[in-house]
């Protein structure tokens, strides 16, 4: 069974784009923030990719809720947002997500990041 990824974005074009890039994984998508949080809690995916600006709950709020909850805190999170200013990126990363990718993004970069995060345990190279 392939690893499962939740994507949350209010733009259907972008949800479809991400799903196409990540077609080797099982992708579950949500178009609203509150839906996304519910979906993640219900499905306990291996990774979640969150847009920031969304109706319902924004990405920052979702990440906050997930990281504060010990049952979901271990799910690696990626912000994929069109907010590209440094302070916006810093604010996103400060919540404690693994990665912040600014839109427009490079499909290869996203794919590679997802692969890396999913093999996180071996990320730290010990000698």
């Amino acid at each position: 069974m392939s690893q499962r990824i939740v994507i949350a974005d209010d733009e259907p074009d972008i949800r479809r784009l991400i799903a196409l890039i990540l077609r080797e994984y099982t992708v579950l998508s949500a178009k609203r923030g509150d839906e996304a949080l519910q979906l993640i809690r219900q499905e306990m995916p291996d990774l979640a990719i969150l847009d920031i600006s969304m109706p319902g709950l924004n990405g920052l709020e979702i990440a906050h809720a997930l990281l504060a909850d010990p049952t979901t805190a271990r799910i690696p999170l990626i912000f994929l947002s069109a907010y590209g200013q440094q302070r916006e990126i810093d604010a996103g990363l400060a919540i404690g997500v693994a990665l912040y990718i600014v839109k427009p993004f490079d499909p290869d970069e996203l794919l590679q990041s997802v692969e890396e995060l999913l093999t996180h345990e071996s990320q730290v190279k010990m000698i």
Binding site: D13, I14, L17, Y83
Partner: peptide, 16 residues
């Protein structure tokens, strides 16, 4: 910038 980036994401993403 956010509003410009959103459609650009689709343009660039699908072309890529």
């Amino acid at each position: 910038s956010h509003e410009l980036r959103t459609p650009l994401t689709s343009i660039k993403g699908y072309v890529d």
